[in-house]
């Protein structure tokens, strides 16, 4: 029983650290276009010809699989026939970090606070 409790606690701590890393990565690489609140209203947005994706739009975000989100972050908007204004981040982020970001996007769009 004690071991079970410890495992549950470890998973909870790891999950919280992951969420924190996701938030920091989002802040560094995404907020400039997708906005502090993830609504697509970043400081660059008024200057763009295409609106950045609203990551809090549950309907739109549910239309994309985790694999697609991973691919668009890694290889850029053009890789899924979307805007080139979304660059490929594969040289700035490793695959593990991109998975963390995908997880964070799911929190933003689809989980109750």
């Amino acid at each position: 029983m004690r071991i079970l409790v410890m495992i549950v606690m470890l998973i909870a701590v790891a999950g919280s650290a992951m969420a924190q890393e996701g938030r920091l990565l989002y802040e560094r690489y995404c907020v400039q276009c997708h906005g502090v609140e993830g609504t697509g209203k970043g400081i660059n947005a008024p200057h763009m010809s295409v609106f950045p994706r609203d990551h809090t739009d549950r309907t739109e975000m549910m239309g994309r699989s985790d694999e697609e989100l991973f691919r668009v972050i890694r290889n850029g908007g053009a890789s899924i026939n979307q805007s080139v204004l979304m660059p490929a981040w594969s040289h700035n982020l490793d695959d593990d970090q991109i998975h963390v970001l995908v997880r964070y996007l799911r929190e933003l769009c689809c989980e109750e606070p």
């Binding site: 802040e27 560094r28 907020v31 400039q32 906005g35 502090v36 609140e37 209203k41 970043g42 400081i43 947005a45 008024p46």
Partner: peptide, 14 residues
């Protein structure tokens, strides 16, 4: 920039 922006209803501002 993330340390110099804040959200408003109309969108983020510097």
């Amino acid at each position: 920039p993330p340390t110099h922006v804040r959200a408003t209803p109309e969108g983020d501002v510097i």
